[in-house]
Design a protein around this nucleic acid. Sequence first.
DNA 1: TATGAATGAGGTTTCATTCAT
DNA 2: TATGAATGAAACCTCATTCAT
Lengths: 208, 208, 208, 208
Amino acid sequence: MTDQPKRRQRRADGELSRRRILDAATEIAAERGYEGTSIGAVSAKCGLPASSIYWHFKDKDDLIAAVIERSFANWLTVWQLPDDVMARDRLMEVAMGTAKAVLDSPDFLRLGLMLALERRPVEPKARAMFIQVREQAFAALATSIRDLGLDLSEEQVRHLSTYAIAGADGLFIAKEIGGDTVDLMALFALHGQALYDTALRMIEENNR
Amino acid sequence: MTDQPKRRQRRADGELSRRRILDAATEIAAERGYEGTSIGAVSAKCGLPASSIYWHFKDKDDLIAAVIERSFANWLTVWQLPDDVMARDRLMEVAMGTAKAVLDSPDFLRLGLMLALERRPVEPKARAMFIQVREQAFAALATSIRDLGLDLSEEQVRHLSTYAIAGADGLFIAKEIGGDTVDLMALFALHGQALYDTALRMIEENNR
Amino acid sequence: MTDQPKRRQRRADGELSRRRILDAATEIAAERGYEGTSIGAVSAKCGLPASSIYWHFKDKDDLIAAVIERSFANWLTVWQLPDDVMARDRLMEVAMGTAKAVLDSPDFLRLGLMLALERRPVEPKARAMFIQVREQAFAALATSIRDLGLDLSEEQVRHLSTYAIAGADGLFIAKEIGGDTVDLMALFALHGQALYDTALRMIEENNR
Amino acid sequence: MTDQPKRRQRRADGELSRRRILDAATEIAAERGYEGTSIGAVSAKCGLPASSIYWHFKDKDDLIAAVIERSFANWLTVWQLPDDVMARDRLMEVAMGTAKAVLDSPDFLRLGLMLALERRPVEPKARAMFIQVREQAFAALATSIRDLGLDLSEEQVRHLSTYAIAGADGLFIAKEIGGDTVDLMALFALHGQALYDTALRMIEENNR
DNA sequence: TATGAATGAGGTTTCATTCAT
DNA sequence: TATGAATGAAACCTCATTCAT
């Protein structure tokens, strides 16, 4: 709301409290999902009374949407798409960059995917928020693929992007389940190759 | 649906009640996840009082673990690995068979993945159950890949299996989020190709 | 009900089941009191289903009354009043016999006193049962005191008996709380002496 | 009843609510014991919703421990040990003072003894609290006895104190069971005498 | 002589949220 | 810029008991 103007530090710092709440909520939500995150637990973890949480956030849904939002922003600073290498290397770089981002700050993806999988009659704002930021990522990726200059149709770009993201999601999950037995870097490298092979195959098809 | 010799029946039929409870719980859990599945809601949906649910299941965890177990068994009847075609066709058949299974009875995967993503300090029995049946599926897939006769190392088999499953998970999620805008069959076909390309690449590497 | 006729042993022995239930109920009730003793817990401890408990006992109240009854009977076999020693020794023997009984099978007293202390609007049958058997013990003790031939008035006999029992109850509680730090035998000896002194004082007063 | 300076007041008065809850809980717990005291019943009696009780007390155990604590504090204001009379009179005064305290506010003792008699695998906080305050009373009594100047060994002081308290507990129970048929004052007088006789006997023994 | 299955009432506790200050 | 106190609804689960077999 107040895009951090310089005044701050006057009396019990509101900005700080907000951050403390978000930190606590992020941690708990990544552990237990949407329903599992109770205001009481957040209050206990951040040390502020429950009513103070309601001073900073309209309701639980609003809080968790904010968690997703901030979480994604953090994630983006890690996930950097390359912008000037050649086709094959580029897809590989995208893959490895994603691997790094997934390893570095997985909270965003974990919570987001949990939300995405639910099918509640009334969709929480938090889920909508995840879907929305995910679309941003999708668009960025599609652009990056289009820029490879490989002469793919729009549908092919869409397929490739979807498959790229699906692989990333799936490998993230594999890592979540398998823990240290899963070599995420190797698997993402494999995924990068597979994307390149797939792109080539698409072009071949186009030329046939 | 319910014939099953005639033994039992007459007087309150426990087997039937158990099934009714599981049906209701499956539906709700797939919609709202572990925490979102309240005994009250299950009771309302299946028509039996909450206390009766506790006659059949020790507690909520036990109930949801049973949901996973039965759900997986059903899913397995749809997911059939082929057993006598050639390498390339075979990987494609695995992929398409999985696509079909994912489209046909997605409850198992949806609930299972939600559980897998959570990181509760004490793991619910239901999550452990999912991890366990998933390992069964992994083993079956690895065997199937080994049987391709492609001369892959054990590590390569493991990588390929993991990647195969990751792709399936990811595409499932893509379908969950994208709905009708996602052509699951086409994407799984693409996944099948990618697996085949990857396998070839692995062999090439071995021979180099 | 069936004062153990010789037939028995026909099919799943009812007498045995009844005993198993009473054993379990005694143990639990001595641990947790009347309310704390749930049919479910008794069922779990004795291995018989809850409905079987209701075949043997009308309801929970009936079960616990039976526990008290049997418990008291057992206790009586340990608590033996002497019947042919001289005054001073006799009171001492009563005291020491009571000490032994209290140490040997304290379940009866523990559960009974718990019940006695409660003041429920509707008195459980079990409490009435305890009060009743306690009166039997009181009467026996009064008779024993009367037989000392000390020329005490009826009121004095009643006072002395009440005080004797009160001391026993109190020392039992002291032992319950203090455990091994309490030398019950020494304290009961002291109690025996005190009773004798008190009796002497009463006679003195009568003669003044 | 509630003046207590005027700080606080205005807006919902937490102190008052807490008191109302404790009053209700004390009454019910003294009637029905630990398990018999349901939060629902307390809520009904004090007029606050059950959830409000949980604002003031962590859980039921915490509530009942608080009941014991406050109950004992009240009891202490009635139970006053004398401090400047001669040996014989003094023991008598202690006894009669205790009789009065027992008659005046028996809730503390009733609930406490019920708790003391239970043997739950995990001891409720409330029971620990009773044991603890009881030790305070024991210490005060022992000091008082030591101050008689009777030259008793420490072990004798301990025995005498234990016996004094045991008698009080036992007579309290006799009164609970016997009601108006029991003349508590007379019996406590008798107990005072018995204590004095016992003390004399101990000294005699020391000198022999 | 039992017992599998069921059940309504009620148990303790947590929930998200509000509101006066 | 907070927060102590409250609250109705709902969470999970256990209760004593019944009944058909």
